[in-house]
Amino acid sequence: MIRIEIDEDRCVGCLECVDVCPTGVIINKNNKPFVENAERCIGCLSCSYVCRADAIKHEGIHVEEKIVKSVYIEEKIERFV
């Protein structure tokens, strides 16, 4: 089961995650994103991809690995503080 958490402090309310989710997991509730149907999530990570505030965290799938990284870049990125 995938758990999705939206960090409210970080979220700026652009609702791009709502637009982008192919399965309607995240909905618009009073102009704020709200995780309504987590069980429908297919783990595509589109929402976290578009989120400008890096506010959406998924747990329960090997999500991070889904992002294609080149080894060289990844090693370097880890050194940016």
């Binding site: 970080r10 652009c14 505030a53 890096d54 940016f80």
Partner: peptide, 27 residues
């Protein structure tokens, strides 16, 4: 950063500026 170097634990900032901004988007 200097504290981090001195005690061997450097903290990263992997989030964007928006996450700290506090302004809200209005369409």
């Amino acid at each position: 950063f200097i504290d981090g170097i001195l005690n061997g634990r450097v903290e990263r900032h992997d989030y964007p500026v928006c996450a700290e901004c506090g302004r809200l988007v209005v369409h």
